[in-house]
Design a protein around this nucleic acid. Structure first.
Lengths: 195, 195, 195, 195
DNA sequence: CATGAATGAGTTTTCATTCAT
DNA sequence: GATGAATGAAAACTCATTCAT
């Protein structure tokens, strides 16, 4: 059972990796660099984690959980209740845009995670699970407006795919932020109209 | 000026890297592995390319050009002419789905290229350029149906983002192929209706 | 002056090392492994011993003393007195076989000690001293049957060399135990006959 | 198929290890030290051998084969033929003493190999096989003088055990060489008389 | 006495790159 | 153009040792 302090130190290391991943991909980031970013001796990383891959695995869990928490915290806000369903979906899009799709640091990290997942089956399984949960949540929201559950699931998948594509573009296209928001808004408006 | 034979050998090496990237990310693929896949001596890779990164840069050009050629070849087919615009757009979607979005080997390589681009400014510039051309081509097709050029550009960007998101999901979600096609088709149908 | 408790703890650690040496050579056995086998915190090993080598030195003393005690205890048994000399020698061989040469755990540890001694002069000196005492004791027993003290010393050395060779073979040859005992018995019988 | 040059280089490295083992046990000898002794870059050791253990395994084969060759070369000398059997056995002992038992460098290396074999099953199997062949050869020589094959095998085993014990003592006891030879000679004389 | 976090030296290993043949 | 031996920098990892609590 990890003590509170141990947990803190581990998170400190994972945060350091997060910072490093803004500059270099994981494979080009050495244990010593992560340690330096964390302000600890490199030997400690082997004390808290089995090996470099183990740091990565814990990091990916950390990121996925972090963003899952962000998501559920938002969903459980008291303000969420009592609203009309279409309003809720619009609010959801607004939240997604601001906190996730347009969060460049997060998007950059996710591009890295996609690549890792593409070659690492166990990471892929974790990421798949996270995306499934996200799609399911969205499908549940759409369910009240669309009768066919298969259809609402397909639309949800398409919406999430679109958001991930936009996250990618926010990094690769170096777009004008205002223009980018218009694309998101315009698209999402069309989705809401369509429902 | 590279001779024909030299050009062949270079492409042979780039194809070998392409094959390697189905198994391992670039950083984990050694020069010797690429050489082995190409059936040439590893020393030769340094004869044909300046260094390992140089192989990567040429490879990315190679992939982008390959897929650009696929795209323009399709656009310039004689069958393309004379059709009604909406039909052309539908046909375009069909082509994209079959040859690009649902081409798993290509999608896997693109996830790798995204990651490389995210950290390498010159690769990012190349990829940005390619996406811009793609978006522009699509915007030109939409132009005839949408009056506002800004709007058609935004829609094009959104469509391409969606397709890239779906390419990602085709790798990460390990989806049922038929179901996946329905998502693509359903979404694209909506787009065409909307125009 | 070490307290009784301190002495116990030290022996507990040395016994733990003894157990570890059944599995791995000393150089491949970490301080933490020894500590774990002893059921104590690894930091403590540095409280009770100066460093890792110091544990080894104390361990070798411990083993040599242990087996020296076994030997003298046996020699000083009341039953030993009054017997005819040849009988005593036969009894000695029997004891050696059972308790030492055929004691596999001991033989394994001794192979390790031989190797350490071969490279470490101070360990070598200790081991040499122990073998000398052993040879001397045996020579003293033979003395009554052989007139020339040089001859009895040479025979003693040869006998001990033979026993150590057999200890080695008990580990390396993985011999059939019964067959192995016959070799020992046959050889020792010849020795006794010869006297 | 290793080329002649490759074989030479490998042997050069194994000889370097042999030299190193006069000073330090294998576990305390670094790859860089072996490389330095061989006069080559340390990276090369990984070119010619899979890893450090692989060097060890090849080294042990090399030593065992080297000494086996010494042994069979001696056995096949033309002078060996036509002699009376007891003379041949005496000659055999003389050879063993001079070239093997009293060869200190070889004995030191063998103590190291014993220890490695004690903990490494595959090395143990190789060493066991070598000892078996040696015992068998000796048993075949004795066979003509002893009727019972079991007896001649036991005596052979005992003789080899004695010789290995003496090799050990030549390192540990730091004996006077002349005295040591007398022990060997006296013992072996007794053996020959006995036959 | 006891604990376990922290340090840093040292080791094996990988691999891009060079270069003589 | 080819080959593959050789180099050396850099990486992950281990572990004895220290020390604050």
């Amino acid at each position: 059972m990890p003590s509170k302090n141990e947990e803190d130190k581990r998170n400190q290391i994972l945060e350091a990796l997060n910072a490093c991943l803004q500059n270099k991909p994981f494979d080009q980031t050495s244990i010593k660099e992560i340690a330096k970013a964390a302000g600890v001796n490199h030997g400690l990383l082997h004390y808290y984690f089995k090996n470099k891959e183990d740091i990565l695995i814990h990091y990916i869990d950390y990121v996925i959980n972090h963003y899952k928490r962000m998501f559920t915290d938002w969903l459980n806000r008291p303000e969420m209740e009592g609203h009309e369903q279409k309003k809720r979906i619009s609010a959801f899009f607004l939240f997604m845009n601001e906190r996730i799709t347009l969060n460049k640091a997060l998007s950059k990290v996710f591009i890295e995670i996609w690549e890792i997942a593409a070659y690492n089956p166990s990471v892929k399984a974790k990421l798949r699970q996270a995306y499934r949960e996200w799609v399911d949540t969205l499908a549940a929201m759409l369910q009240r407006l669309i009768i066919d559950p298969d259809v609402s699931r397909r639309i949800s998948t398409a919406i999430v795919a679109f958001l991930e594509g936009m996250a990618l573009f926010s990094i690769i296209l170096e777009p004008d932020e205002a223009e980018f928001q218009k694309i998101l808004a315009g698209f999402q408006e069309k989705i809401v109209d369509m429902l």
